[in-house]
Design a protein around this nucleic acid. Structure first.
Lengths: 220, 220
DNA sequence: TAGATTGTTAATCGATTAACAATC
DNA sequence: TAGATTGTTAATCGATTAACAATC
């Protein structure tokens, strides 16, 4: 073994394992706030909705942070997963589109404790521009590049109608963000190096409708 | 082959294929609204963000609805996927929690054309109960069972704080919904037969943060 | 030590990609 | 027919599960 970086011998994280890390982090936060300092793969897995085997396998990709016969130190594991995800410093986020959804996102208080800070709000409606939402003044879309740059944002959230989502994505990419979270039901094209994650609420409901029809298995 | 049901020889849809059907539906809607009546696996795949091979494989599980050398009939395929997902009749939805997010969901006009109808809003805040949002009067949480039953809802949406999400889930399950979409960052336990899908915005952002740190690959 | 629990290897399973035969 | 495009089979790849050795 050629000891990769100073911290832990992480080789290559499988995409599926990475996708579960936020759930582990959430479960660890829950344990910590209950005063639990030490946990086991069984307890943590149960709170994350996975099997103990899968949890241990996932954690093994991060390096070994448990102790055999003992378990996992909650604070240490929490810190380590946070560091792998890149959450030591708050990641700065700009929200484009301050309609009902954008407003809801801006007002949501839970982002701060999970590693994010909202540094800018942008909209193209003159009735909304200039108003203050969650302590931030809404800026016109023409100033998007400046909002991103001066706020030091690395992530953009698109909460606009689908019709303008692609041009907003183009503008965000040009402004230099490296990630985009979009709520618009619309496939987006972005340059290499700009990651897109799409959350489409109607699609989620459609999958629930499907499972409602074809259920004989069950649960999550 | 033992010709399964009257419509198409569908055997067993892989979970991963099902998860992509909503995207295909969205792409087909786009084509249809542009007046395109006939499409190819290449065109449809490009608009859905998958490879043509994967699209054809997925569609093959539904039965054969294309014509070799010709392509796919947009309207027919659209109807067929909609029928597989269970969207011919609107699926009725109750939203619990009419804060900013619940309000945004209730006010969003796009659900109707994608197979859903919001039939009830519930909240526990006396200041909100009784107000009208998106044409519906917000009902107290004590009446949840009645709202679900009289509205004929099969799906519940949880847009409450995490602290009460589990008890809302219990109430929704008891009221008889078969699917729950939750936005609360909280693992939910539900009885067999009640499917849960969780959308956690902070988790999505955390995955973007990760990819921002570890990028050498790129794109979506 | 004995019991507990992790980390890892091996076996299974499912999903994706590639190739191509069927057929319009 | 020749060209195009699907549907399906086979090969590869990745993810999950199971088993167990390492070790606290």
């Amino acid at each position: 073994m050629t000891t990769a970086s100073a911290e832990g011998a992480r080789e290559r994280l499988p995409r599926a394992s990475v996708a579960r890390l936020p759930a582990y982090l959430l479960a660890l936060d829950g344990l910590w706030s209950e005063g639990t300092k030490l946990t086991s793969s069984h307890e943590l897995a149960a709170r994350s909705g996975v099997s103990p085997e899968q949890l241990r396998k996932d954690l093994s990709f991060l390096g070994s942070y448990g102790r055999r016969g003992v378990g996992y130190d909650v604070a240490q594991l929490r810190g380590h997963i946070g560091s792998v995800l890149g959450l030591e410093e708050p990641n700065r986020v700009v929200i484009v589109g301050v309609g009902h959804l954008g407003h809801a996102l801006a007002a949501y208080g839970g982002f701060a404790e999970r590693g994010f800070s909202i540094v800018g709000l942008v909209d193209d409606d003159p009735a909304v521009v200039g108003t203050t939402v969650a302590g931030l003044v809404v800026r016109p879309v023409a100033e998007l590049a400046d909002v991103v740059a001066s706020g030091g944002a690395t992530i953009g959230v698109i909460a606009t109608p689908a019709a303008v989502a692609q041009q907003v994505a183009d503008a965000l990419a040009a402004a230099g963000v490296h990630g985009i979270l979009t709520f618009a039901p619309q496939t987006l094209q972005t340059p290499d190096g700009v990651q897109v994650r799409a959350v489409d609420l109607a699609s989620e409901l459609q999958l629930l409708a499907f499972h409602g029809r074809h259920r004989e298995h069950a649960k999550a």
